[in-house]
Each structure stands twice: as structure tokens, then as C-alpha cells.
């Protein structure tokens, strides 16, 4: 299975949708959702990079049956993305907790409404 650049283009599209959501929506939760999408798309990019066609998961298959040495996909991008997923959830948690506090002190989570308020506050 050679998949050429298909994954890469999917990554571009997801990235664009995510970024557009972040920039165009004024609802803060929606912004966070867009940000999550934006980050997830990057995971796809890295993981696709690590795949070798015909390869298998990078876990050593032991036993004498293993005559032809299997091709393993590259484990390094997997490690990097594990870290990136963690960073993603950390950012999400922090962002959402800010949203909760903003809702409490401003009474809204709509960016435009908050901006209108700013002068009065």
C-alpha cells in the first residue's frame, strides 16, 4: 500500500479547518475545539511520516518463526506524538479552566461580548 501524499493533504485540510475555527469563531469553547483539531492534524502528519509501506508496528516479534526480518515502522515520530498529545491535553485543560473562570467573572464566553464590555470593566 503506497499512499503517496493522501494523508498529507488530509492533514492540510484538517489544519486549515482547525485554524479557521480558532480565528473566526468568537465563542471561547469553540475556539478551544478548533485548537484541538489544529493540534490533532499535526499528529497525523508526524505519524504518516513514520509509516513504511508493508511495515509493522515497532514491537519486536520474537520467536523462531520470525525468519524473514520484518520491516518495522519508525518509532521516533510515535514517541514525539505521544509527547505532543500530552501537551495537547494539558493545553486543553488549562484553556477550559480559563473559560470557566471567564464565564464566572464576565457572565459570557463570547469574545465579542467581552470586548464590548472591556471599556466599562
Amino acid at each position: 500500500m503506497s499512499f503517496g501524499f493522501f494523508n498529507y493533504w488530509v492533514f492540510i485540510i484538517l489544519l486549515m479547518i482547525g485554524l479557521y475555527t480558532v480565528m473566526s469563531r468568537s465563542n471561547l469553547v469553540k475556539k478551544m475545539i478548533g485548537l484541538s483539531l489544529f493540534q490533532i492534524s499535526v499528529f497525523l502528519f508526524y505519524i504518516s511520516m513514520g509509516k513504511i509501506s508493508g511495515g509493522t508496528a515497532p514491537i519486536v516479534v520474537d520467536g523462531p518463526l520470525d525468519t524473514a526480518a520484518p520491516i518495522y515502522s519508525n518509532p521516533l515520530p510515535h514517541v514525539l506524538i505521544l509527547t505532543a498529545i500530552v501537551v495537547g491535553i494539558a493545553t486543553t485543560a488549562l484553556g477550559l479552566s480559563l473559560v470557566v473562570r471567564i464565564r464566572e467573572s464576565f457572565g459570557t464566553i463570547d469574545e465579542e461580548e467581552i470586548l464590548e464590555m472591556k471599556d466599562g470593566a
Binding site: N7, I40, F43, I47, S48, G50, K51, I52, G55, T56, A57, P58, I59, Y72, S73, P77, H78, I81, L82, I85, V86, G88, I89
Partner: peptide, 13 residues
């Protein structure tokens, strides 16, 4: 794409 560990994490997180 052979990234079982990542898949596991992504599903859980």
C-alpha cells in the same frame, strides 16, 4: 499506520 501506542493514547485522551 502502525502507531499502536499513539492510537491507544489518542483514543484514551
Amino acid at each position: 499506520l502502525d502507531a499502536v501506542d499513539v492510537a491507544f493514547t489518542e483514543a484514551a485522551v
